[in-house]
Simulated scan of single mutants.
Amino acid sequence: MSVYVYAITKADHPLDLEDVTGVGEEPAELHTVSNGGLRAVISESPEDLSVARRDLEAHHEVQEQLWADGAILPLSFGFVAPDEDTVRALLEERAEAFSQRLDELTGCAEFNIKGVHDEDTLLRAVLADSERARELNESIREGGGSYEDRLALGELVAGEVQTRQSALAEEVLTALRPFALAEKVSPPSQQYFVSVSFLVEDERSEEFTRAGGELAARLGEGVELRLRGPLPPYSFV
Rank of each mutant, 00 (worst) to 15 (best):
R150Y: 01
S166W: 05
V172Y: 05
Y147A: 11
S166A: 08
E160D: 12
G159S: 11
E183G: 02
P178R: 06
L168R: 05
E148A: 04
E183K: 08
A175R: 15
L168G: 01
V185S: 00
L173H: 10
E171W: 10
G159M: 02
P187S: 06
P188K: 09
G144K: 03
A152W: 10
E160S: 04
T174R: 15
E160Q: 01
A158S: 14
V172E: 10
G159P: 08
V172Q: 10
F179L: 11
E155N: 13
D149Q: 06
G159L: 09
L151S: 06
D149F: 01
S189Q: 07
E155V: 07
Q162M: 13
A175P: 12
L151N: 14
A158T: 11
A152F: 08
G145H: 01
L151C: 08
S146C: 06
R164V: 05
K184L: 08
Q190N: 12
A175V: 14
L151M: 06
L156R: 03
K184E: 09
E155G: 03
Q190C: 07
P188W: 03
E170Y: 13
A158V: 08
E170I: 10
G159R: 09
T174P: 13
Q191E: 15
P187M: 04
R177T: 15
S186F: 05
L181M: 02
V185Y: 09
R164E: 07
T174G: 07
G145A: 00
L156D: 04
L156K: 04
E148F: 05
E160I: 05
G154Q: 06
S166R: 14
L168I: 05
E170R: 15
R177F: 00
G144M: 01
L156S: 04
A175M: 09
S166K: 13
T174K: 14
E155T: 10
V185F: 03
P188Q: 11
A180C: 10
V185K: 01
E170Q: 15
A175W: 13
L173P: 07
Y147R: 15
A167D: 15
L153R: 09
S186C: 02
L153F: 03
L153V: 05
R177C: 09
G145R: 03
E148R: 05
Q165W: 06
A182S: 10
V185I: 04
